[in-house]
């Protein structure tokens, strides 16, 4: 196989799932390219990637803030009313001396998801303004390191599992935060599915190349 120079490497793409080598080809706006071997998604082309990404990230952040500000669920047990917020989950672990699990949960369900959305917002804003090539690079690297450790979706399912365990013992009322969290998770999943990290790298390259490689 022959290529012109190292730059041309960026036109190659290795499938995430089966490791087949592909060459990137231009595709129509709004369509996606899939792997010929295993059918998994390789990349999308979306001419409004920055705007869409920014809009979705801001929406997600708003729902994240709501999800963290109100009670997740209220229960009535033996005549007592109890409620939890996301933060109370960490606090109760700290209270009973489970610092390690508490700290892990704090990172996995609060700090990392928050950071992911903040990084996205800053990143897309900078790309929109076509500024700070070095900083966007560092943000992208940080994003890749954090992404696998963001577990909001798993927490949402855990809430449901915990509630099902309580059915029969207690009266359960879903709180505002629960729905906000569910929407946040849906947005998070949508962004992950829709915007592939390599697409942002390619976009970044196009943007800063046009500006004459600052």
């Amino acid at each position: 196989m022959k290529i012109e120079n190292e730059e041309a490497l960026d036109r190659l793409i290795i499938c995430q799932q089966c490791h087949t080598l592909h060459e990137e080809i231009p595709i129509k706006d709004g369509t996606k390219a899939v792997c010929t071997e295993c059918g998994s998604m390789l990349y999308h082309y979306d001419s409004r990637l920055v705007d869409n990404g920014l809009a979705w990230s801001i929406t997600g952040l708003i729902f994240f803030i709501v999800a963290n500000s109100f009670p997740l669920v209220n229960i009535e047990l033996l005549g007592h009313e109890q409620f939890i917020t996301i933060f109370k989950t960490f606090l109760s672990l700290f209270d009973s001396g489970y610092y390690l699990v508490g700290l892990m949960s704090l990172f996995l369900i609060f700090l990392f998801p928050l950071m992911i959305f903040l990084i996205n917002i800053i990143l897309f804003t900078l790309l929109k303004l076509k500024k700070a090539p070095q900083f966007t690079k560092e943000l992208l690297i940080l994003f890749s390191h954090i992404k696998p450790w963001s577990m909001s979706d798993i927490f949402l399912i855990s809430v449901l599992v915990a509630l099902v365990k309580l059915i029969g013992y207690a009266q359960i009322h879903m709180g505002v935060s629960f729905w906000a969290l569910a929407i946040f998770v849906a947005i998070d999943l949508y962004i992950t599915k829709r915007i592939h990290i390599s697409e942002i790298w390619m976009l970044r390259k196009r943007i800063f190349e046009n500006k004459g490689n600052r």
Binding site: Q82, I84, T89, S96, M151, I154, I157, S158, L166
Partner: peptide
């Protein structure tokens, strides 16, 4: 796999009468 840990954390926060 983290589900069980989170479930325990939620139950512990919710049930302390």
């Amino acid at each position: 796999s983290m589900i069980d840990v989170f479930v325990v954390a939620i139950l512990a926060a919710l049930i302390h009468l």
